[in-house]
């Protein structure tokens, strides 16, 4: 076969492949693009309580600036994010180290460690409602057994965010641990042998070798958890619906209520796009950090 004929065959094969995959590609792009474009369009509309729709340009975004609930929601979202992420990363690394070094840990124990994140959020939410009930729940019973004063947990404006952070930490720390455990298992043994020959203590080895080498993995875990944490919804909706007062009214909860309970779809879209921008911002920042700590 001449070169020209071979090129022609290759071009035809490429064309055929493109034609065959085009429907799937178009469908996938449309499924991703349409909701985004539609939400952006909705964000420029105003819907009155009677459902009348009008184009308002950037008015919904301008309204965000003076909306006290938006700033409260932003603060609540960030507080929950920072607290939960910090707890999950610290405990996740610790749990991964325990699992890595505890070679004789039975399989059932390892399975139990990772079971919380396999639980559906609705089930987890219902379970925690029962455990944290100030009158009937086991949590206050344990506190009283230990001689500590009872807490109102999810009913306290002060404690509701730390309590949600604890619930999320319980559920997702094992997930972080699994990611970190994968990173630990891929670290080169030669570095540890060299440290051992140099007489480095266990703490120094962790501080100077394990942690720096694990940082890219930890940042990857942070990215994955950031996306979820900034969109935290299910358990709050099931337990407090944003209360008490507005103490757990995250941007996601607030946007949902504005859209689906108060029917202001335009403003809700603006809220959700702002939240999406925040999520993108957090992911980009983490990505940059990952680039900086890569080895």
């Amino acid at each position: 076969m001449s070169d020209a004929a071979a090129t022609l065959t290759q071009d035809r094969q490429r064309l055929e492949l493109s034609a065959l995959s085009a429907p799937a590609v178009i469908f996938t792009v449309a499924m991703i693009a349409f909701p985004v474009i539609y939400t952006v369009w909705l964000g420029f509309q105003s819907f009155s309580s009677t459902g009348k729709q009008s184009f308002v340009g950037l008015a919904n975004y301008a309204k965000l600036v003076s909306d006290h609930e938006f700033w409260n929601g932003l603060w609540v979202t960030i507080a929950l994010y920072v607290l939960s992420l910090a707890l999950q990363l610290v405990l996740g690394v610790w749990l991964a180290l325990v699992l890595f070094h505890a070679k004789r840990l039975p399989g059932i124990v390892r399975s139990l460690f990772i079971s919380p994140f396999m639980m559906p959020p609705v089930v987890a939410g219902m379970m925690w409602i029962v455990i944290l009930d100030p009158s009937l729940g086991a949590a206050n019973y344990i506190l009283q057994f230990l001689g500590l004063p009872p807490s109102e947990w999810l009913a306290s404006p002060t404690w509701v965010i730390p309590t949600f952070a604890l619930i999320d930490t319980w559920q997702w720390t094992p997930y972080v641990a699994l990611i970190v455990l994968g990173g630990l298992q891929s670290l080169p043994p030669s570095v540890y042998e060299a440290a051992q020959i140099d007489g480095a203590s266990a703490f120094k080895t962790f501080q100077r070798i394990t942690l720096p080498l694990l940082l890219p993995t930890i940042v990857t875990a942070a990215i994955l958890r950031s996306v979820d944490l900034l969109r935290f919804f299910d358990i709050i909706y099931i337990t407090t619906q944003g209360g008490p007062g507005n103490a757990s009214n995250t941007l996601n909860i607030y946007g949902f209520r504005v859209g689906f309970e108060f029917f202001n779809i335009g403003y809700a879209s603006a809220l959700m796009l702002t939240l999406t921008a925040i999520v993108f911002g957090a992911v980009l920042a983490c990505n940059r950090l990952r680039g900086a700590v890569a080895w």
Binding site: P134, L136, P150, W153, L154, A155, G243, P244, G245
Partner: peptide, 21 residues
Amino acid sequence: GPPGVVNYSFQQISALYRGGR
């Protein structure tokens, strides 16, 4: 009222009353 009443709707109220509390 019970502690945590700010999170009480019909489910919690009925459970508390039915349980004799």
